[in-house]
Design a protein around this nucleic acid. Structure first.
Lengths: 206, 206
DNA sequence: CCAGTTACGGAATCATGGTTCCGCTTTGTA
DNA sequence: TACAAAGCGGAACCATGATTCCGTAACTGG
């Protein structure tokens, strides 16, 4: 994957071109997109794509990994805040990331993310939620499960409406945050259990 | 499709078996499910499947149509109420429908629903939202767009977490409803425009 | 500018799975 | 019970698209 020696100029250029083309084509044709098309869009032959990525699957995995990196960076940034607004900031960053990748997000959605990355996100959400509770930004009864549910819900919203209304998630998030703050007793339905949470963890955070 | 004359006993029995098998297999294998498998699960040959449904596509479309019917029935039921709680009831019914079809919902998601059905749902949501506003169940600034966004979000949540936590959508919905009621000014982000709404209309409501 | 690598292109290969076809079986009726 | 008619099974056919292979072209250091 990562060459120990500096790769040839054209090689790295093609690497990026392929990733971009893949995002484009997968976004347009969904799962039906074929390698031929991706290669053509990138201005290279299929053989080149295969030298860079072992398989179509590996290519999509790489897209997922890159998207996850964005989210992880956002998490770190949010954790750096000391007030109780880190959670809101993080959620906004996630929404934006979803929106950026809306076109092909449904493909990423079908695979499970790297366990380590998923763990880090989970930890971050844990911490941010606790801080928000302390700061009173959200109601005492709100749990990590509630926040994760919100994230998955946002993904669904963006997935459905993202191309026509790329900003719809913002208003939605504001409304839901109001709910998280105001709900007296957060419903009589129990929150997600730890067991459920750990099973759901590898679900792509983006 | 619909035979004018009563079909043979075994024919109608197989018809149902095929639909059930399709739900099962599509739920397990996702888009990768093949007709061979569906036929086998239904205990019939592929030929039989193809006499009933013109193509794999048509089969999935039928599943979508049936799911939509459930939603439409729920809409009618909710509209029959005279208090302001019809909206809540409808949303709960939709959540339940999503949960019931969670396993293969992502397939339905990728296709657009019949325009007529979509229109009816849109109308129902319109009316129910207006009533809820009047009754004070939701804030004055809440629009149809906000409600539709909630529906799409619920779908996303169920799609991600449905198999592990089939009830997670309930708590989520309660929290969001609280938000719809309490939000002072529903964010500075504009709600979905009519244009956007009509473009989004055919997005499968289930 | 040259030799040695490294990368590229794209035709050919191979697997998968949707769809068709037709002889056999079951159902319904007289 | 016998005859159509309607339905069934599943092997065979065919298109699509992922993946491989190898002769050729493009870099890079000297």
């Amino acid at each position: 994957m990562v060459s120990s020696q500096p790769a040839r100029r054209d090689a790295v250029r093609n690497h990026h071109r392929i990733l971009d083309a893949a995002r484009e084509v997968l976004g347009e044709s969904g799962a039906g997109a074929n390698m031929e098309e991706i290669a053509a869009r990138a201005g290279v032959g299929v053989g080149t794509v295969y030298r860079r990525f072992a398989s179509k699957d590996a290519l999509i995995d790489e897209l997922l990994r890159l998207a996850m990196e964005e989210v992880l960076a956002a998490a770190d940034h949010a954790l750096a805040r000391t007030d109780g607004c880190g959670l809101g900031e993080f959620l906004r960053a996630i929404g934006q990331s979803f929106a950026d990748h809306a076109r092909y997000a449904n493909l990423l959605l079908e695979r499970r993310a790297d366990g380590v990355a998923a763990g880090r996100i989970r930890t971050a959400v844990d911490e941010l939620t606790a801080r928000a509770r302390t700061a009173g930004t959200v109601n005492q009864g709100i749990t990590v499960g509630d926040v994760l549910a919100l994230i998955w819900a946002m993904r669904g919203l963006v997935q459905t409406a993202g191309d026509v209304a790329p900003d719809a998630w913002q208003r939605f998030l504001d409304i839901h945050l109001a709910g998280l703050r105001s709900t007296a007793s957060p419903s009589d339905v129990r929150s997600l259990s730890d067991r459920q949470l750990s099973e759901l963890a590898p679900r792509a955070g983006s």
